[in-house]
Amino acid sequence: MLPERMINLLILGLLLAVPLVALAMDEPFIITLATKAAVLAVAGVGLNLALGQGGLVSFGHAAYFGVGGYAMGILASHAQSYTPIMEVPFLIEGTKSMLVIWLVAIVASALVALLVGALSLRTSGVYFIMVTLAFGQMLYYFAISWPAYGGEDGLSIYVRNGFPGLNTLDPIQFFGLCFAVLLIVLFVVNLLNKSPFGLALNGAHQNEERARTVGINVYRLRLTAFVISGAITGLAGALFADLNRFVSPTMFSWHTSGEIMVFIILGGVARLCGPVAGAAVYILLEHVLGGLSEYWHIYLGAILLFVVLFAKGGLVGGLSRREVRHAG
């Protein structure tokens, strides 16, 4: 049994080591797989803030993942076709700059999360799950039926967007960028978890009545967490779109919401690096089992069942010992 911090370092160390070894062995595909794990981990870390810390079981986080993806797709597609996004009342042009795209993805997904959260947080339990799912599906069907941006076929972006000082088409450099984003997100989420906000959020998860009775506005607290959570998942969506140089309505579908949730359950609910471990294992299984059988999800299901039944707290929870979060 190791302290959780050691396990976190181990997980991140492994995720960093795999592409470096792959680079030495000239296996760019493995680097791409690691990049995918890092990007999906960001999405998972985002959802984990709402689901793990806040106890808000959102089954519609694909909405933010998709909004982030389409933010990238729309901005980059206009840039590659040299057409403005709109001209009246003022001119907005597309861009191939990742920094601008990330910013737009974060703001847009935060706004959508604000709207969805403001409505869905008035419900709780199963209703909350269903309302978030419904919003996700609404956006899915909206994307399918929006011909301007590819409809069902999605949008292809021919050249990966640019980041100052990097050649983003080089797999290892793009991995480095995504890994850095993951580290920053983990750093911020860790600060949030330990802050008064995080303590209140988890406290309200454990006992809502208690939080109210000490004067905490639980609705506002949860809405704030939900918006931050959505924004992080939106950022992941923009990165995912850039990784594939392709966006499609699939990013919005409830399968995507479920997958992000699976990362968390596999890795450890409310564990800082749980979604990182979960996403990495998921990608590994998809690659290894997917090579054996088209129906690899059956094995994934069995593994998930095992984790839920026997390793409460997921991979991270199973490996780490319980800690008291402060001394004295």
């Binding site: 600060l191 330990k194 802050s195 008064p196 906000f197 303590l199």
Partner: peptide, 9 residues
Amino acid sequence: TFGFFRPAM
């Protein structure tokens, strides 16, 4: 409640 960055403990 909306202190975000300083550890509460």
